[in-house]
Structure formats: structure tokens, C-alpha cells
Simulated assay, not measured.
Amino acid sequence: MATEERPDLLTVSDVCVDYTSGRRKQAFRALKGVSLEIGAGECLGLVGESGSGKSTLGKAILGLAPVASGTITFDGKDITHAKGAERRALASSIQVVFQDPYGSLDPQLTIGEILAEPLTAAGTRRGAARSAVGEMLERVGLPGSVVDRYPSEFSGGQRQRIAIARALVRKPRLIVCDEPVSALDLTTQAAILDLFISLQRDTGVSYLFVSHDLGVVRRICHRVVVMYHGEIVESGDGEAVTRDPQHPYSRRLLMASPVADPSRQAERRVAWLRLKDQAA
């Protein structure tokens, strides 16, 4: 997707996150001075392997990981250490879609109850909440009649549509998408990615799209940031970074992305092994 100038909605400046473990409370630095910006209406891809720190950054933005140093600014306001009522108020502007569509929905609640809960918690009357829920379900490609059904009655792709509807129902300005298609089959992945693109076009919402797959982010992201061991090693236009990456780690990620052609896949496998040997 082409890059264009957009006013910054979220700014992450030199953020470090530490985790402690063991009896001696030894600290592990998961993020090492990370800085990035997300513009209004922009989709920024955050790519890296497991353990690279990409999900930790998403958690820091959501207030789920403690920031040791640096700042996170949303719409000009410092939210680095927002707690309590201030953090709850941010829920109307910042939402999340998790990786697992099976574990992210309460199995004991109906779809209508799941989607209405964030609205009623914010003070919306039940009638208005029901109307908003029906409208949002239709927007994500599900009939309003599913409100009385339970999550167990739906496929993985349908559940992820429900999770997206829940994230959008309060009309946020930013959604952190934490590996939202990695648990889905390829056909369903494509449909959900198309849905994300359509919803962004219609609503103007911004995405931080976390993924390990350069092929996925190429399809949806305006810009891409590559993380390795808690640091940003490459960033730039989505098309450029995902098709012709410059950093050796980014090139290894590209070689690891599957392609449909067996011959090309074999060539990629050889190239990936060569890059891996060079990095060792």
C-alpha cells in the first residue's frame, strides 16, 4: 500500500520495557529504546519472530506492560503510565484484537452480550447498545440475528469477525491487532485482511498490525517496522520493506514467508539457510 503523509496519532519515543524473573528478580530488557509513529488512518506493520518484542510493544501501548523509560503519546497526550480511570477512558479510543479467536471471547456470554458489554460499561443505554451491536455485526459481515448465539457455534473466521466488531463498537481511533490472522487458514486470512482494509477505509481507524509474516503485512500496511531482539532494525514504506528489505534479519523473514510455487519455495529455503548460516 502506498505511503502518504498523515498527522501522528500515536508516538512512541525511546521506550524500554523490563521484565523480571527468578528469585533474584533478574531484569530482562524486552524493548530497548523503541521509537515509532502511527498516523491518523494509517496501518503500521510491526514484524518480527517470536521473542522479538513486537507483542510487548503492543502491550505497552495498551498499558499491559510496564514502561521502564521513554514515553508513549496518544493524540498529543502522554499515556505512558496511565492508570485507573484515565486508562479506562482510553478504551474508547484504543482497542485490541487478539490472536486467538477461540480464547478471546467469553464462552458463557451470547454474541449480543459480548458486544454490548463495552458499551453499557461506558454508560450507553441498553436499547442504543443493541442497535449499535446489530449495526456493527452487519458491518463485519454477520447477520444481526446472531446476537442470541454463543461463540462455540461459530468458525474461527467468524469468531475473529466478532472480535473485530467488539473492538470497533466503541468507535476507537486506534486498534492494536496482535497477530489477528495467524491462527486462521489461508483462505480465511485473506477474507479477514480484506475486512480490515474495508473497515479502515470506511471508518478512518488506525492500526498497529503485529505479525511475523511479511507477506501478510504487505497486503494491508502502509509502512512496516521490523523488530529484532527488542530493537527496530529496519523501517520504511510497506511495499519496499516487504519486497526488497535491506537488513539481513528482514531478508531472513522474507525468505521464511511461504510461496505457492514449489520451485520458488525451494529456492527461498536455500537462500534462508544461507542467510541463517551467515548470521550464526
Rank of each mutant, 00 (worst) to 15 (best):
L105W: 02
I197W: 00
L273H: 13
E37I: 06
L64N: 14
V224Q: 09
Q26V: 08
T73A: 15
G48I: 02
V233F: 03
F154G: 14
Q278N: 08
L174C: 11
R149K: 08
V241C: 05
V233M: 07
R201E: 15
P262G: 11
V216Q: 08
R161Q: 08
P151Y: 00
G236C: 06
D237P: 00
L137T: 12
V67L: 04
D100H: 03
L214F: 02
R223V: 00
V146C: 05
V225G: 11
R125C: 07
L119V: 07
P245E: 00
G112T: 03
T242Y: 00
T20A: 14
G84T: 12
Q99V: 11
Q278T: 04
E4F: 00
S50C: 14
D202T: 01
E231H: 03
V210L: 07
R269S: 15
Q99K: 09
F28D: 13
I197G: 06
V210G: 07
P258N: 08
A191S: 09
A89I: 01
H229Q: 15
T242N: 01
R130N: 12
L275S: 12
A27S: 15
K25R: 12
A271G: 12
S250D: 02
G76M: 02
A2L: 01
S152A: 15
V225H: 11
G33K: 06
V67T: 07
A85T: 11
S182I: 04
S211Q: 01
V241S: 04
S50Y: 13
Y150N: 07
P245T: 00
S13V: 08
S155F: 00
L168Y: 01
S92I: 03
L115H: 07
V226C: 12
G215V: 01
E117G: 09
V12S: 13
